[in-house]
């Protein structure tokens, strides 16, 4: 058994979802310093949807990518600086080249779980410039284990040095994770990773299941700070893996300190499993929708749980935020007897 786990910390990227992409410059510098001191191997920063994603559709970031990256770079001495990049939002010439210039060490090139093909050029670009690069398959519950493995195999072929599957909607139970991670481990000759969301309270359990099935890359955020009901809680992961005999290279006390700092100085309200989050997880809808769903729900007087259920039945994915209003209006029309 491989006893080393590579921890990637998306507190300053996934956490940005939780505050509508309004993390401040000081938040980046403060947490980067703390994570760096704790020995976190990889710190991921940026807009919640990654490089180049700031927009009216998915949310405008209070800071530019340039400011976020340069701030993080200044405050990371040992930890690698990582970015999430979704082709479509992130272009090679404009965004990846800029990120290279600003000293990004690791590119995590992400796509919807059935669309790995779009990552080809971005992965190749990062490899060509000598950077560490991973493929990321988002909303992974929307593909069968075999299909997911085929998509991961493409990323391996493009040059990815590992593939991470994301439970973007917090939909999985441990068995689901084991089944998918096992399929990838069997198919690939590169490391496999897992990124949890905690909608059903399974963030840690699912991460443990992933490791037991052969994953060696695990994502975790301080205090679970992330979209919806948050991610697997980083400091808990470190403690649990230590108890299980896995090495993360992270100093437990210092990551506990970092999480305390994050709670005190960065996280305006700690993630928790709200009633809506539970329905979001069951529906298999992207956790990052929750702010927008709650807002539209309140504005139009439609039950947020009904919106999530309907979004789930329509297989909504990130980038289809405009669907939230459409669904809400449709539900409102039904309940009030108005025509659609």
């Amino acid at each position: 058994m491989n006893k080393k786990i590579l921890i990637s910390d998306p507190t300053l990227r996934d956490g940005n979802h939780a505050v509508r992409h309004q993390l401040r410059k000081n938040d980046f510098s403060t947490y980067c310093k703390a994570a760096d001191a704790a020995g976190v191997p990889m710190v991921e920063v940026g807009h919640g949807n990654g490089l180049g994603a700031s927009s009216m559709l998915v949310g405008e970031c209070s800071l530019s990518d340039e400011i976020i990256l340069s701030t993080a770079r200044e405050n990371l001495q040992h930890s690698k600086l990582a970015v999430h990049a979704i082709p479509g939002f992130c272009t090679i010439e404009r965004h990846m080249a800029m990120a290279l210039d600003l000293g990004v060490d690791v590119f995590r090139i992400a796509a919807h779980c059935t669309e790995a093909d779009i990552t080809d050029r971005h992965i190749a670009f990062a490899r060509k410039h000598g950077k560490e690069v991973y493929g990321v398959l988002m909303m992974s519950h929307m593909a069968s284990p075999d299909h997911l493995a085929d998509e991961a195999f493409k990323m391996q072929g493009y040059g990815a040095e590992g593939v991470v599957i994301m439970d973007s909607s917090g939909h999985y139970l441990p068995f689901d994770v084991s089944e998918r991670i096992s399929a990838l481990v069997e198919m690939l000759s590169i490391p496999v990773g897992f990124h949890a969301h905690n909608n059903l309270g399974m963030g840690i359990a699912n991460s443990v299941a992933a490791v037991q099935a052969g994953a060696t890359i695990i994502d975790g955020s301080a205090r679970g700070f992330g979209a919806g009901s948050g991610n697997a809680q980083l400091e808990v992961l470190v403690a649990v893996f230590e108890k299980m005999g896995y090495e993360t290279g992270i100093d437990l006390y210092k990551i506990l300190d970092a999480a305390d700092i994050a709670e005190k100085e960065i996280i305006p309200s700690l993630p928790y499993i709200s009633s809506t989050s539970i329905v979001s997880g069951l529906s298999g809808v992207f956790s990052g929708f929750i702010k927008e769903v709650n807002s539209i729900s309140a504005e139009h007087g439609v039950d947020a749980r009904d919106i999530f259920t309907e979004l789930g039945s329509r297989n909504a994915v990130a980038g289809q935020e405009s669907l939230i209003l459409e669904v809400a209006l449709a539900l409102k029309g039904d309940s009030s007897g108005e025509a659609r």
Partner: peptide, 12 residues
């Protein structure tokens, strides 16, 4: 050296 495959027994 980047990460190992979890299937460490494989030979290529």
């Amino acid at each position: 050296f980047t990460g190992k495959s979890a299937s460490v027994d494989r030979k290529y």
